[in-house]
Simulated scan of single mutants.
Amino acid sequence: MLHELTSNPLFGLMLSIFVFLAARRLAARVKLPILNPLIVSILVVILILKLTGISYEDYYVGGGMLNMLIAPATVSLAIPLYQSFHLLKHHARSILAGIFAGTLVSTLTTASLSVLFHYNQELMASILPKSVTTAIAIEISAKMGGITTVTIIVVIITGIIGAMFGPTVLKWSKVEEPVAKGIALGTSAHAIGTSKAMEMGKVEGAMSGLAIGVTGLVTVFVAPLVLHLFSSLL
């Protein structure tokens, strides 16, 4: 009886939605960065599956349906970008320079840490595209011979950490320009960071959405080059 219930596509879907909405309400009441709705939802769902003995396969029958929304959700970020297009034209050079610099620093730092901790080439390829959105990161990782499962995990962790601590780092760094805040969050923490940027303001959200696409494009070219340069050091 339980298996028939949990294997129904609606089970995983409704569980994911209900837990996330509850986590959002908790985050709204308790203003702590660590209580990010996404990370709380992940931990709660894992706990429920462990305590009830429900298999991940049964849960994913419905939970996986949410994956279909990744692409349209990413495309929808173009709406706030269109509304702030005048800012893009005015700050074009600064925006592109900031995104390129952020992407280059991210990939070089990741590669350096991979060498430091003696990762093999496959693992390095898996984590290099950690700062781009999942759909793009999977393709980059696969082309470089990485493990896509590891890539997904690293991308999620990167986004959560960026959304949790990014605003605090920007505050400590005394970054007050909305355009700069949005570019920083989008370049370093992709879609999850963008969701936080949109909470901060329309300009921040629009610039962060722009950064997702440009960062993905730059990473397509930069990541393989960095992998090639550092692979001899592994």
Rank of each mutant, 00 (worst) to 15 (best):
Phe11Glu: 06
Asn8Phe: 14
Val175Arg: 01
Tyr59Asn: 10
Pro167His: 11
Gly63Met: 06
Val44Cys: 07
Thr168Lys: 13
Thr219Gln: 02
His228Leu: 10
Ala163His: 08
Ser131Arg: 00
Ala189Leu: 04
Phe85Val: 13
Gly205Met: 10
Ala189Val: 09
Gly182Phe: 09
Phe117Asn: 02
Ala22Leu: 15
Ile17Leu: 15
Ala223Val: 09
Lys31Glu: 13
Leu81Ser: 05
Ser232Ala: 13
Ala180Lys: 12
Ser232Gly: 06
Ser41Pro: 04
Pro129Thr: 02
Ala197Val: 08
Leu128Gly: 07
Met124Phe: 05
Leu113Cys: 13
Lys202Met: 11
Leu217Tyr: 05
Arg29His: 12
Arg24Phe: 03
Val75Leu: 13
Leu227Thr: 05
Ala189Phe: 08
Ala97Tyr: 05
Leu38Ile: 15
Arg93Tyr: 11
Leu69Arg: 05
Gly166Trp: 08
Gly216Met: 11
Met198Trp: 00
Gly53Arg: 09
Met124Gly: 15
Asp58Gln: 13
Ile153Ser: 14
Leu5Thr: 11
Leu15Asp: 03
Leu87Ile: 12
Glu122Met: 12
Ser131Asn: 12
Ser114Gly: 15
Leu170Asn: 08
Ser106Pro: 01
Val105Arg: 01
Ala78Glu: 07
Leu170Lys: 08
Tyr82Glu: 05
Ala111Met: 03
Leu113Asn: 07
Gly53Val: 07
Ala211Thr: 10
Ile161His: 02
Pro167Met: 11
His90Pro: 00
Leu49Met: 08
His118Tyr: 07
Arg24Ala: 10
Met14Val: 15
Asn120Met: 02
Tyr82Pro: 04
Leu5Gln: 02
Leu77Arg: 11
Ser7Tyr: 08
Glu204Gly: 04
Ala206His: 05
Ile153Val: 15
Trp172Pro: 00
Val154Ser: 01
Arg24Cys: 14
Pro224Ile: 09
Thr107Lys: 00
Lys143Ala: 15
Asn120His: 09
Phe165Cys: 01
Ala23Asp: 04
Ser16Gly: 07
Thr149Ile: 06
Ile95Asp: 04
Ser112Ala: 15
Ile39Trp: 13
Leu229Asp: 01
His91Glu: 14
Val61Pro: 01
Gly146Thr: 09
Ile160Lys: 05
Asn8Arg: 03
Ala180Cys: 10
Ala101Asp: 01
Leu10Met: 14
Val226His: 05
Val45Arg: 01
Pro33Leu: 04
Phe20His: 06
Ser114Glu: 02
Gly64Trp: 01
Val220Ser: 08
Ala180Arg: 11
Ser112Val: 03
Val75Lys: 09
Lys181Asn: 08
Asn36Cys: 08
Ser76Arg: 00
Thr133Val: 13
Val222Glu: 04
Glu176Trp: 00
